[in-house]
Design a binder for these strands. Sequence first.
DNA 1: AAAAAGTAGTTGACAAAATCAACCAAAAAC
DNA 2: GTTTTTGGTTGATTTTGTCAACTACTTTTT
Lengths: 150, 150
Amino acid sequence: MSEEHLSEEYLLESFFHLMLAVKRQLHQQAEQLDLEVTPMHLRVIKIIDRKQPCTAIDIASFLGRDKAQVTRLINALIDQELISKAPNPNDKRSQYLLTTERGVAVVEELNRMDECIVQRMTKGLQPSERAEFQRLARLMAGNFQGEEQS
Amino acid sequence: MSEEHLSEEYLLESFFHLMLAVKRQLHQQAEQLDLEVTPMHLRVIKIIDRKQPCTAIDIASFLGRDKAQVTRLINALIDQELISKAPNPNDKRSQYLLTTERGVAVVEELNRMDECIVQRMTKGLQPSERAEFQRLARLMAGNFQGEEQS
DNA sequence: AAAAAGTAGTTGACAAAATCAACCAAAAAC
DNA sequence: GTTTTTGGTTGATTTTGTCAACTACTTTTT
């Protein structure tokens, strides 16, 4: 009566545990790089590299986060000379964000590390299962998106 | 050449997006309760309720987090009279954590809300898909667990 | 049984992640 | 040609999380 299946865990708790593990991995990743950056900075520089040319607002909307936070993340990346600003010809208020030479090198390293993390994470999974997980994650994230009022 | 599939997103990014959406939901949940608590407090009281009797260390190890943080979360829950401490007969250093009457009511409300969140999140998914997602999440979290040195 | 080592929990200090509100300058809408 | 919206910055604050030091009690070792 009081003995429950340990495996009978709630969906959200399972998700939290994976969340924690992934966060730890990214934290380690940031430490290994030996730069003055946090996991969030790394996420931002990857986005900048991928979506070049992109603006601060693009990043904020992709991350779904406050632009104040993005401004500070960007400033830190500029201080470390991993990215730079260039005038946006279409809008004098905004600037294009570009990865510097140094930044590109970091991103390449990061992509290698990310692949490594995903490899470890999906160890023992079929490629089809990996794809299925991603499909479901995207689907569920989409389920929430509709109902959010900005 | 420069036009990429928008859907060709990285596994980790998909996961992050879901993470963000879930976090927002829990944040709203905490606000709706109209108590002086944060999502993390709610997670803790649910654990206390589920694993009763349990100690601070049990919670820290289940959450995988620092005991300092747990101490503070617990103190806040006690201030709000949602949980209480009772002496642990097996060990004078530690205390059992128990939900108060008020705490039990909150947990019941929380379970309803959680179920609601999961419902919305898994809208359009087959029960088998929901189970599959959970299975994969648990499997992947397990893949990381092995390699962590305490 | 006494010393050493380990464990439960608390406290202080601090870093990281995130949000809110107020603000400026430029752009778009009217 | 004002008004409103948008891109971005800054300041203040909250939430989450970690590290280190410490107390008090337990367990292990000798």
